[in-house]
Simulated assay, not measured.
Amino acid sequence: MTLEWKIKTFEALSVHELYDLLKLRSEIFVLEQNCVYLDLDGKDKLALHLFGEFEGKIVAYTRLFKPGISFENASIGRVTVDANYRDRKWGHDLMRESIAAIKQHFGESKITIGAQLYLKKFYETHGFVQTSEMYLEDDIPHIEMTRE
C-alpha cells in the first residue's frame, strides 16, 4: 500500500483537488486541533502543492515554498495526514517527498519550518534541528526548525 504522489502549482490543481486538500487541512488544523484561524492566508497561490492519494482520496499533503516566502530559506508547511491513515506512517513518506521536491523544483537543500512543538522528534528524524525558542501561533506552541 503506497501513495500516488502528485505535485502541482496552484493553477494546475483541479477544482476537486483544491476542495479536497482544503477540506483535509480544515479537518486537521481547525476541527481536530480546535483552532479557529484563517487557513487561506494568501500563500497557496505561491506554493507548490504536494499530495499523496490513496484509492483516489487525498490523504497526505504539504505546501512547498521557495526561499523568501514563509522564511528566508525554502520551506514546507501545512504538513497534513488524514487521521484515519496515520497508523501507516505516511507522514514520514510525506516529509521525504517534500524534501526531495524542494531540491528538485527549487534547487534548495536548506529548509526552514514552523513546527508544532509536539512534533519536534518527528521532524528531527528528517534532519531538522530546533533554531528558535517556543512561540505561540494561533495559541499552539511552535518552534522554528531548519534542515541544512
Rank of each mutant, 00 (worst) to 15 (best):
L3H: 03
E4D: 15
K6I: 15
I7C: 15
K8R: 13
K8E: 14
F10S: 08
F10M: 09
A12E: 12
L13G: 06
L13Y: 05
L13W: 09
V15A: 10
V15T: 13
H16Y: 15
H16E: 12
H16A: 15
E17P: 04
L18W: 09
L18V: 01
D20N: 15
D20L: 02
L21H: 01
L24S: 03
L24I: 03
R25I: 00
S26T: 10
S26C: 07
E27A: 03
F29C: 01
V30Q: 01
V30H: 00
L31Y: 05
L31N: 08
E32G: 05
Y37P: 01
Y37E: 00
Y37K: 00
L38H: 11
L38Q: 11
D39E: 10
D41I: 01
D41N: 05
G42K: 13
K43H: 13
D44Y: 02
L48N: 05
L48G: 04
H49W: 02
H49E: 09
F51S: 02
G52N: 07
G52H: 07
G52W: 00
E53F: 03
F54T: 02
F54G: 13
E55P: 02
E55G: 01
E55C: 13
G56K: 07
K57F: 03
K57P: 04
K57I: 11
V59M: 01
V59R: 00
T62R: 02
T62S: 11
L64M: 04
F65A: 04
F65R: 06
F65V: 03
F65H: 09
F65G: 03
K66W: 09
K66L: 13
G68R: 09
I69C: 08
I69T: 07
F71C: 07
F71D: 04
E72M: 08
E72L: 14
N73C: 08
N73A: 12
N73Y: 15
A74F: 14
S75A: 12
G77S: 04
T80V: 13
D82F: 00
D82A: 10
A83I: 11
N84D: 12
Y85E: 14
R86H: 06
D87I: 06
R88W: 14
R88V: 02
K89T: 13
K89D: 15
K89A: 12
G91T: 11
H92Q: 12
H92R: 08
D93H: 14
D93Q: 15
L94F: 09
M95Q: 14
M95D: 11
E97T: 07
E97P: 05
S98K: 05
S98D: 06
S98H: 03
A101E: 12
I102Y: 10
K103N: 15
Q104E: 14
H105V: 03
F106V: 05
G107Y: 05
E108F: 11
S109C: 04
K110T: 13
K110F: 08
